[in-house]
């Protein structure tokens, strides 16, 4: 299990380093899925991922809380809870700042769904978990740093 994880992390790091050199044409072809933001999810840099979901001009907001552990022993399973107190929250996106593919998930809320999402995500290395919230046509963001310990007893 440990060896497996090391490979994952090594792979993720290498992918991050060469991301600038990787042309769009080299990205793995994945079957097109209706209603799936391919450009955002396959983007290997943070700016591209945030731009693809329309969060380029997101303003930092104190009304969003990102709950995640300070230290995650196992980067493969990091519990994250996002609460948006912004009225009329339409969607919540979760982004792993230094992940090989930063965009993790986008949740569109409707018909009474509250500005709350709790899930578990993967993180390649110590970085911020960014929550990007859209409400009333505007984008807001907040983040929390999670330290990912590699190896240790988490494997």
């Amino acid at each position: 299990m440990n060896i497996l994880r090391r490979n994952v992390l090594k792979g993720a790091g290498a992918a991050g380093a060469v991301s600038v050199a990787v042309a769009a044409g080299l990205m793995k072809p994945t079957a097109a899925f209706a209603g799936w933001n391919k450009a955002g999810f396959e983007s290997k840099d943070l700016g591209g991922a945030i731009g693809a979901i329309g969060g380029g001009s997101a303003a930092a907001s104190g009304d969003i809380s990102v709950k995640a552990p300070d230290i995650a022993e196992n980067g493969a399973v990091v519990p994250v809870e996002i609460t948006s107190h912004i009225a009329g929250t339409d969607s919540i996106a979760i982004i792993g700042e230094k992940n090989a593919m930063p965009l993790i998930a986008v949740f569109n809320l409707s018909n009474g769904a509250q500005g709350f999402i709790s899930t578990r995500i993967k993180m390649g290395s110590t970085s911020n978990v960014i929550a990007l919230v859209k409400a009333g046509g505007k984008a807001y963001k907040a983040h929390k740093e999670v330290k990912v310990t590699i190896g240790g007893c988490g494997g």
């Binding site: 809320l109 709350f116 578990r120 993967k122």
Partner: peptide, 30 residues
């Protein structure tokens, strides 16, 4: 996710969600 047939949550995921995913959300007015 739907409640009585009405969509409350419509999510798009990448590979960054952990294996055997856990998801929790809240719906007002149900």
């Amino acid at each position: 996710a739907t409640v009585n047939g009405k969509t409350v949550l419509d999510a798009e995921w990448g590979g960054g969600v952990s294996k055997n995913p856990y998801l929790a959300f809240k719906v007002k007015g149900a």
